[in-house]
Design a protein around this nucleic acid. Structure first.
Length: 280
DNA sequence: GTGATAACCTGGGTGC
DNA sequence: TGCACCCAGGTTATCA
């Protein structure tokens, strides 16, 4: 499922093929993708415009079009963009027709979305309402993360998954970062020490960087625009490794549920928080 | 105001 | 073999 590294992989692959080219046509085969706009309405706003830049913010792919028109694409769980596929791939929901290239957007579960922002202010407002800092932003410091953590009683796993706090971290990279930082996913965020927050910040950045270097993780659906799988799944430290030995201490990786998500943890390296007993 | 949970959605796996 | 059920998870809406 596309998280920040997978979306960044797609962006890096596609940018040289789409930047500077004209988006001739947008064919929306499933209006669910563009709602509340009808597919035709969204297409009318973007067709005929030059793609000035293909950007990314969190898990969003940003098609920056001439005239300050922005097409904001989220792949959610199973979305994939395929460059110049042969024929129509299964589950194709949208075609992006550029001069010289066709892109098929496929999405078996139909969770992915395409939204429109008209003008820089609308774009800024869109992301301000949805996303916190980028983990690769200079402002993503230990002090910043510590301030956020102190204000949240939520389990740190839920804290990491909240896009309004940190943009781009999903279930895979949250598990990997917490393992690297030796922090139990159920520990309340406001009970992390500054040292732990510092370790967590470093671990988030390191995990995401490792994912980008490996061109993303392909558990089931993710493919790059050429249809090639990423390799980060081969480097998972704990994610999906239930019952296997911990790569650090040899203990057993266990699966539990945190923030409503399957969560993998070595409880020897990541000690479970002790229950606090209310006293009178 | 904050955190927890359900709903959206569909393919794949499991059990009967 | 075929059917029913459950699980996976990013985001949003709703509830406590």
């Amino acid at each position: 499922m596309p998280e920040l590294p997978e979306v960044e992989t797609i962006r890096r692959h596609l940018a040289p093929h789409v930047e500077g080219r004209t988006l001739r046509a947008l064919e929306v085969l499933d209006d669910r993708w563009s709602r509340p706009l009808a597919g035709g309405e969204l297409a009318a706003a973007v067709e005929g415009r030059v793609v000035e830049r293909l950007g990314r913010r969190g898990k969003y792919l940003i098609w920056e079009l001439a005239g300050e028109v922005y097409l904001l694409q989220h792949l959610r769980m199973t979305g994939t963009l395929l460059l110049d596929p042969q024929g129509a791939p299964p589950y194709t929901r949208v075609w992006l027709r550029l001069d010289e290239h066709d892109l098929a957007y496929t999405d078996p579960r139909r969770f992915g979305t395409g939204e429109l922002a008209l003008g820089g202010e609308a774009l800024d407002a869109f992301f301000a309402a949805r996303l916190g800092l980028e983990p690769f932003d200079e402002a993503f410091t230990t002090a910043h993360l510590h301030a956020l953590a102190r204000a949240s009683r939520a389990p740190v796993k839920a804290f990491l998954l909240d896009q309004k706090r940190i943009a781009g971290v999903g279930n895979i990279y949250a598990d990997e970062a917490l393992f690297r930082a030796r922090i139990h996913p159920l520990r309340p965020a406001n009970r992390l020490s500054r040292t732990q927050v510092d370790a967590l910040r470093e671990a988030v950045v390191a995990s995401l960087n490792a994912g980008i270097t490996a061109k993303g993780a392909s558990i089931d659906d993710f493919r790059d625009p050429y249809g090639v799988q990423g390799t980060f799944q081969d480097q998972f430290l704990v994610h999906l490794r239930e019952g296997e030995p911990c790569p650090r201490c040899g203990g057993t990786v266990r699966k539990l549920r945190a923030a409503g998500r399957g969560t993998y943890v070595c409880e020897r390296c990541q000690p479970r928080p002790r229950l606090r007993v209310a006293q009178r």
